[in-house]
Design a protein around this nucleic acid. Structure first.
Length: 429
RNA sequence: GGAGUGAUGUCCGAGUUGGUCUAAGGAGCACGAUUGGAAAUCGUGUAUAGGUUAAUCCCUGUCUAGGGUUCGAAUCCCUAUCACUCCGCCA
């Protein structure tokens, strides 16, 4: 959510940001008009309320006679009714304003490239080299099925399309990856591990801005206020909602493993082969709460922490600075990390798979979650800046590991760093 | 799921026959005095959101949340949430 003051004081900046994000610019003008209405009504109500308060107080004074009190009572009752009337208008206008603000995108950072599609994303760096195969690499669904560590048919049987079952060494490999990532982030990168609820209240999804815009991509209980988390970003960023943190505590760095649940309605028919896109997937997510002055540098550090996983797993990857049209609506800037999977497109060959998005949200989410910090004892509270990034998304990193580490006989070599988490196993066969 | 009790500022805590509550008091914190320095002591200040303003002043809302009664609500009524106790159920 943007500060309403931005609309009042820097309308042109807001409009430019909206234009870059492909958002209706006239909405900014409409918001200014509603804001003017709200403030006019508010001033009117408050003046009348002040009058009523003074008069009511006088009613309780000692010297007043019952007759005077009765006479005054009718008069004040009328004033009270009048206040209610205008106040109802005010509430309505405020609600309009709130709704309008909930839908507005964040303003992109100056460094974000303009563009509509992924072709306009800027390649920041490419790390590692693609492996040269002396044989034709197989896609992960073939490897997994043959090794009997991946079962698509039974996944579909019990849960429907876009579900699969990991079995034996497949399940163990994923568990090892999760354990390895958590260990790296907690022991080397300085994050505190969080195990959050996988179901949250609706207000949390408003807080991180999945709602109201993307309601149809989330699962929720029909009877109670429970929503399945689409990413650990939601519970973890909301952890300190409505709090005022001591400035000295920042930055706060959390890492959490959770399953993620998504309807994927927008992606119907896309990526149906293999385990690339499902209704349920696992992810290790990093979340940072930082001061406004440091958020830019913290984004680079976050990206670096995510990359450390790719490096340790010795997977070729690239980093992209995502353009205005492709990035999320609510961050100020977003880097994507893509790892290379040599057979993920089957007959067509390899593919870069997005395994992480690292974003800075500025104070956008902090405003929605009312999450502030006090820079110095006694100082006025300010909104924190929030950031998050995957570190990393599991099924896709599974794909990359399986396809990059496959051998000609169909077995898969276990990456060195994962072996301690798999009882020393070197090969899945 | 049933019954009961409770929720006050950063924290503790008074206030519940509706009207100087303009929320006492204490702790903590900040600044100052005192001191060679510190402790102790004393003094001053110290919630938050918004409106108005050049700024101050001032005004409005907030005593868990949302409604209601009333000229007027921390206080009375209703609903919800959370915590605790007892019962039931369960892993």
């Amino acid at each position: 959510m943007l500060d309403i003051r931005l609309f009042r004081e820097q309308l042109e900046t807001v409009k430019q940001g909206f234009a870059r994000m492909g958002f209706d610019v006239s909405e900014a003008d409409r918001i200014v008009v509603i804001d003017d209405t709200v403030r006019a009504l508010k001033t009117e109500v408050e003046a009348m309320q002040a009058e009523l308060n003074i008069a009511s107080k006088a009613m309780g004074a000692k010297g007043i006679t019952p007759e005077e009190r009765d006479a005054k009572r009718a008069e004040l009752r009328a004033l009270g009714d009048k206040i209610s009337g205008v106040n109802a208008q005010r509430t309505e206008a405020e609600e309009q304003l709130r709704k309008a603000l909930l839908y507005t995108p964040n303003l992109p950072d100056a460094k974000v490239p303009n563009g509509e599609t992924e072709t306009e994303n800027v390649l920041v760096r490419e790390v590692g080299t693609k492996r040269e195969f002396s044989f034709t690499p197989k896609p992960h669904w073939e490897l997994g099925t043959t090794l009997d560590i991946l079962d698509f048919e039974r996944g579909v049987k019990i849960s429907g399309s876009r579900f699969y079952v990991l079995k034996g060494a497949g399940a163990a490999l994923q568990r090892a990856l999760i354990a390895f990532m958590l260990a790296t982030h907690t022991e080397q990168n300085g994050y505190t591990e969080i195990y959050p609820p996988f179901m949250v209240k609706e207000e949390c999804l408003y807080g991180t801005a999945q709602l109201p815009k993307f309601a149809d991509n989330h699962y929720h209980d029909a009877e109670e206020d429970f929503w399945l988390v689409p990413t650990a970003e939601v519970p973890v960023t909301n952890l300190h909602r409505d709090e005022i943190l001591e400035g000295a505590r920042l930055p706060i760095k959390y890492v959490a493993y959770t399953p993620c649940f998504r309807r994927e309605k927008m992606s119907a028919g896309r990526d149906v082969r293999g385990i690339k896109r499902g209704h349920q997937f696992d992810k290790v997510e990093m979340v940072k709460l930082v001061t406004p002055q440091t958020s830019e540098a913290e984004l680079e550090a976050l990206l670096n922490d995510a990359e450390s996983i790719c490096k340790a797993l010795e997977l070729p990857y690239r980093v992209l600075l995502v353009c205005t049209g492709e990035k999320g609506d609510f961050n100020t800037m977003q880097y994507d990390i893509e790892v290379y999977a040599p057979a993920a497109k089957g007959e067509e060959g390899g593919e870069w798979l997005e395994v992480s998005s690292c974003s800075n949200f500025g104070e956008f989410q902090a405003r929605r979650t009312n999450l502030r910090f006090r820079p110095e004892p006694g100082a006025k509270p300010e909104f924190v800046h929030t950031l998050n990034g995957s570190g990393l998304a599991l099924p896709r990193i599974m794909i990359a590991v399986m396809e990059n580490y496959q051998n000609e006989d169909g077995s898969i070599t276990v990456p060195t760093v994962l072996r301690p988490f798999l009882g020393g196993k070197e090969t899945i066969r």
